[in-house]
């Protein structure tokens, strides 16, 4: 008797969202990237469509302070210049997207003006042809002040504006609608709030094909099991037909993984953990793979070696054992 693989049939598939617009669609990107479309859980190719994850590499718009040595080594030649940094990520490390974090907007730090921030965005848009994610500084007042100008500077490029939260979504949603961008729906690792923000965004007119989900998660070792279960539950709800949770998901990996002491501490300070390289790189890669297995569609990463490891592991998962 032949064995028949039991196959799960889901009610719905994940909404497809296109990031980036080429000249033909009113932008200047060399290519657009469509994410989403999963018809089953990740890597179960024998059950249905499981799209390959996209890796966005993160670029800060000013020189970071206190970075761990392995990151300094990788980026110190470019990290005062977001355009050069972005270029390096794309040309040398093959980043699918650039995630530009406007840290210089922070009113408690550099407090760059909206016009200056718009210049940073334009410089990166000119330097690279891949789609962009643009992240505010997290201060609601400052972000809401800058979004109209920063979003306008990228009008028509279909960037992801990050991020809309339950208590602060109207300005960013209005900018996304006006300038044809995608909105990142952020929640504090709470599926109920994530769903509520989708409802709120939908109420103000943001269509499902313009929403990406993001749960704030930590790095490996810091409650990642809980994060995994929330992401997986979100994906299960989406596949089960919950339209408010059927958007593709994004995970921030780099900044979270490198925040923890297991990645940050050099060997001199923690000799029992061995050399910082490859420890820190493995820490970032393992964090990324955990989220991939929960269903994440876009990973935002830092270290080029971690990016390489995740690419290789993903490729292996796609090419080995498919269809059994």
């Amino acid at each position: 008797m032949s064995f028949e693989m039991p196959v799960e049939n889901w009610r719905a598939s994940i909404t497809q969202v296109t990031i980036g617009a080429t000249e033909q669609d009113g932008g200047t990107r060399e290519r657009a990237i469509t994410i989403g479309g999963a018809a089953t859980l990740p890597f179960l190719a024998f059950e249905g469509e499981t799209p390959r994850p996209i890796i966005a590499m993160e670029v800060l718009d000013e020189q970071p302070e206190g970075w761990p040595e392995p990151l300094v080594e990788a980026f110190s030649d470019v990290y005062g210049d977001p355009a050069a940094w972005a270029q390096k990520c794309v040309e040398e490390y093959g980043a699918d997207m650039i995630c530009l974090r406007l840290v210089s907007a922070d009113p408690d730090e550099t407090n760059a003006s909206p016009d200056e921030l718009a210049e940073h965005v334009k410089a990166v848009l000119e330097a690279v042809g891949v789609p962009l994610i643009i992240w505010g500084c997290g201060n609601y007042d400052k972000d809401n002040e800058m979004w109209p100008i920063v979003s306008q500077a990228a009008a028509g490029e279909r960037v992801i504006l990050a991020s809309a939260e339950e208590d602060n979504y109207k300005t960013i949603a209005a900018c996304a609608l006006a300038d044809k961008h995608v909105v990142l729906n952020e929640s504090p690792l709470d599926i109920n709030i994530q769903k509520q923000v989708s409802i709120l965004l939908s109420d103000v007119g943001v269509k499902p094909e313009n929403i990406v989900l993001y749960e704030v998660t930590g790095g490996l070792g810091y409650g990642i099991e809980y994060a995994f279960s929330i992401l997986e539950r979100t994906r299960l709800a989406g596949l089960g037909g919950d339209k408010m949770l059927s958007a593709p998901m994004l995970s921030v990996v780099g900044s979270e993984a490198w925040k923890v002491k297991e990645a940050r501490l050099p060997e001199e300070e923690a000799p029992e953990w061995g050399p910082q390289v490859p420890r820190s790189i493995l820490w970032e890669a393992a964090t990324a793979l955990t989220f991939l297995n929960a269903g994440t569609d876009i990973l935002v990463m830092w270290h080029p070696e971690a990016v390489k490891l995740v690419r290789q592991a993903t490729e292996d998962l796609f090419t080995s054992g498919n269809g059994f």
Partner: peptide
């Protein structure tokens, strides 16, 4: 069988 959100009634009808 459905994920709670504050506007769960509205969510169902979207």
């Amino acid at each position: 069988r459905a994920v709670y959100a504050d506007d769960f009634l509205k969510a169902y009808r979207k």
